[in-house]
Design a protein around this nucleic acid. Structure first.
Length: 490
RNA sequence: GGCGGCGUAGCCAAGAGGUCAAGGCAGCGGUCUGCAAAACCGUUAUUCAUCGGUUCGACUCCGAUCGCCGCCUCCA
């Protein structure tokens, strides 16, 4: 069985083939650090976190590079607004980025290069481009000659003639051709500046990724990733730069994930539908966000809404409830001699979980299908647990625990079911209690009263109490070991 | 205008040229329960935007139409 991954370059799913056997070299475009990260950034980081986890699970060694763009127009503009330096602003939002990433439980990439720490590598690359006749200095800037690269447009599937006809590109007198893009920008007074053969200035955006990927992964590497909005012009320009210099393939496989939308529109500040990661995490557990994000294939748009998040909460709780029920089984209270209650079908279904999971994930990281497999598993486990006698067979208990652990192991690839099940469920309940301003003592006093009524078969009063609590979104569950309660979502 | 993508049940969302179109949420019937809740069992698309074509056979391939979204300027 091999892994198939959709390649933006070919527009098709392709079998993963690495340059070095068993080693994936991955470069992902990270953030421009000038503001807090939004859910779209979370999706990007989570998607590649999942991809890296899965590649490792499949036995690959992964070298994962993700850059920080810490010098650019937006950073300079924002720093000026806030009366601080570009350097300070960029460093601050990189720290804030890590706060969010850590909360989401995202593993750090192996290498996280910053643009400002690779100026000399970029200058070297630009000099190579000039010497090969692929770039020219003009004024204080240096531009890439798009016409010098015949494959320009191969990633975004557009051709140079169409783009020139479409000409929404602003006229820049420094450029020979409107499509030429900047490699090096002469700096204006007061802007951050580095010395270069073309005078003081700073790098253009695209050159950093060409320079840093070359340094850390080589001239050709396996996978390059990012959001769909980076396909053009960013990744197209990276290809032009790198292949223009090296004369060979840049990245073999391109992975682009879809956007997070709100009411079916792309999030953007101008539309005012911009939600930061920390906004979301004040309302939802990080694993709920992960579960939500992986409920749709990574290339499809994902529409954020309260109700979608509540569905995700319910789904994740269902998984945790199942795991918690298995955790509660006590091997000490099982019987080594009693017969198993599993049918062959049950056993077969549970034993095939991992291979079905792999089949889903091997098919372009189909996390949505993988989640479906988790639910199938949960359904079977729940059915068995329900049918278990008071003193179950020791081998059944052992098998159920093995299945639950296996479920945890696979769920961990998408970063869910990482917490102790009882604690997760209790935390959810406590959150609801505090958000609802509920008085636990009063609730439990009512439950005690109700249980007295129930013993006395005073059903009228006990139902009255239950309805009273239900009006506060509190649901009672009368079990063999007493009454438990939970808080309903709205 | 150019390019790319999407349109599957009330909602979300997989799938895929061929016996039954995953799964979740919601709904309905049942088991359990004093009644409930949870859990479980059963049930909910003869049909996959529309219209044509290819094929023994298409929801899956091709073409057209309609609708939605994205990129073409910074953007995850």
């Amino acid at each position: 069985m091999t892994m198939r991954i959709h390649n933006t370059l070919s527009g098709k799913k392709e079998t993963l083939q690495t340059l070095e056997p068993g080693h994936v070299k991955l470069y992902v475009c990270g953030i421009t650090s000038y503001d807090y990260c939004h859910i779209g950034h979370a999706r990007s980081a989570l998607a590649f976190d999942m991809i890296v986890n899965y590649l490792k699970y499949r036995g690959y060694k992964v070298t994962y590079v993700r850059n920080f763009t810490d010098i650019d127009d937006k950073i300079i503009a924002r720093a000026a607004e806030q009366q601080t330096s570009a350097e300070e602003l960029a460093a601050r939002f990189i720290r804030e980025f890590y706060v969010d990433m850590d909360k989401l439980g995202i593993n750090r990439p192996d290498i996280e290069p910053k643009a400002t720490e690779h100026i000399s590598e970029m200058i070297a690359l630009i000099e190579e481009l000039i010497s090969k006749g692929k770039a020219y200095p003009s004024g204080n800037d240096v531009y890439y000659i798009v016409d010098s690269f015949p494959d320009y447009g191969k990633l975004s599937k557009r051709n140079v003639e169409d783009m020139q006809a479409g000409a929404r590109i602003s006229i820049n007198e420094q450029k020979r051709n409107p499509l030429d893009f900047v490699l090096w920008k002469g700096s204006k007074p007061g802007e951050p500046t580095w010395e270069s053969p073309w005078g003081p200035g700073r790098p253009g955006w695209h050159i950093e990724c060409s320079a840093m990927s070359r340094k850390y992964l080589g001239e050709t590497f396996d996978i390059h990733g990012g959001g769909q909005d980076l396909i053009f012009p960013h990744h197209e320009n990276e290809i032009a730069q790198s292949e223009g210099v090296h004369g060979k393939a840049f990245a073999n496989l391109w992975i682009h994930h879809g956007f997070v939308t709100i009411r079916d529109e792309k999030m953007s500040k101008s539309l005012g539908n911009f939600l930061t990661i920390r906004d979301i995490l004040t309302h939802y557990h990080p694993e709920v966000l992960r579960f939500f994000i992986f409920s749709t294939h990574y290339r499809n748009p994902l529409d954020f809404s309260e109700s979608a998040m509540q569905d995700a909460t319910a789904g994740l709780e269902r998984l945790y409830e199942c795991v918690a029920a298995v955790d509660r089984l006590d091997p000490q209270k099982s019987d080594a001699n009693s017969a198993s209650i599993f049918t062959d079908n049950d056993r077969q279904l549970l034993e095939s979980m991992e291979s079905r999971f792999q089949q889903a994930m091997d098919n372009d990281f189909n996390t949505a299908q993988a989640q479906g497999i988790f639910f199938d598993t949960v359904k079977t486990i729940n059915r068995i647990c329900r049918a278990l006698p008071a003193v179950p067979s020791a081998s059944d208990v052992e098998f159920l625990k093995k299945c639950a652990n296996n479920l945890r192991k696979l769920a961990d690839i998408m970063g869910i079911l990482r917490e102790d099940a009882e604690s997760f469920l209790a935390a959810g309940k406590n959150k609801m209690i505090s958000e609802g301003g509920l008085d636990v003592n009063a609730i439990e006093a009512l439950i005690a009263e109700r249980n007295q009524c129930r013993s006395a078969k005073n059903w009228a009063r006990s139902d009255e109490i239950r309805d009273l609590l239900l009006a506060q979104n509190i649901e009672l569950k009368d079990g063999p070991n007493g009454t438990t309660w939970s808080v309903k979502g709205n």
